[in-house]
């Protein structure tokens, strides 16, 4: 039951993009087509879960025993950057099909603050390893959900007559604002 609450909370109530403002760059940049949004969502799900497992282990078995928690930021960003590189190399060798689908999104993920953000959040919330994994899956699903809905709306926006000054990013930001308003309806559910 507790785990279901974590998942629902991460996807709807505290949506990582629309309520916590993490991962806005790919949200604005990649999500103009539903197909690419699905690819990005899959890549984030994969990397986020892996990154949270690895950083959680590093925190609890390296940083805390040696009492160097202040190295968290440096250690985490290095781990995430090398993890992304490794995933890219392994996928290329093991599963070319999956690499084809996720490949172009992988380099972008290193600078995706959602990954580092969730890795730090699970430490702040003092989750155990299983809770951390579930929390990161929920957050990645929330990220994918927001990205796919947003892409769906943007595909239709091409047909609209938008005032000159609002074209492009400003109009997208207004749409994101309305979407955030809709997600606020889930507040208080958990």
């Amino acid at each position: 039951m507790e785990y279901i609450l974590i998942i629902i909370g991460a996807i709807f109530v505290n949506n990582i993009v629309l309520a916590q403002f993490l991962g806005i760059c790919p949200f604005m940049g990649v999500s103009s087509k539903v197909k690419t949004a699905v690819g990005m969502g899959g890549a984030v799900l994969f990397v986020m879960t892996l990154a949270v497992i690895v950083t959680w282990i590093i925190m609890h078995y390296v940083l805390i025993p040696f009492e160097i928690q202040y190295m968290q930021t440096i250690a985490y960003i290095l781990v995430i950057a090398s993890l992304v590189q490794m995933v890219e190399i392994i996928l290329k060798k093991m599963s070319p099909a999956l690499y084809q689908a996720l490949g172009v999104f992988l380099p972008l993920i290193t600078t995706n603050c959602a990954i580092l953000g969730v890795a730090i959040l699970v430490i702040q919330k003092e989750f155990n390893l299983l809770e951390s994994v579930i929390f990161s899956i929920g957050n990645a699903a929330g990220f994918a959900l927001a990205l796919i809905i947003f892409a769906g709306i943007r595909e239709h926006m091409d047909k609209l007559n938008i005032p000159e000054g609002m074209k492009g990013i400003p109009a997208s930001l207004v749409v994101a604002g309305i979407l955030a308003l809709a997600f606020m309806g889930f507040a208080g559910m958990v």
Partner: peptide, 16 residues
Amino acid sequence: VLAPGAFIGLAYLVAI
């Protein structure tokens, strides 16, 4: 002050 205001506020500032 809540999340939607951030998006909409930034949208209009960028346009201006």
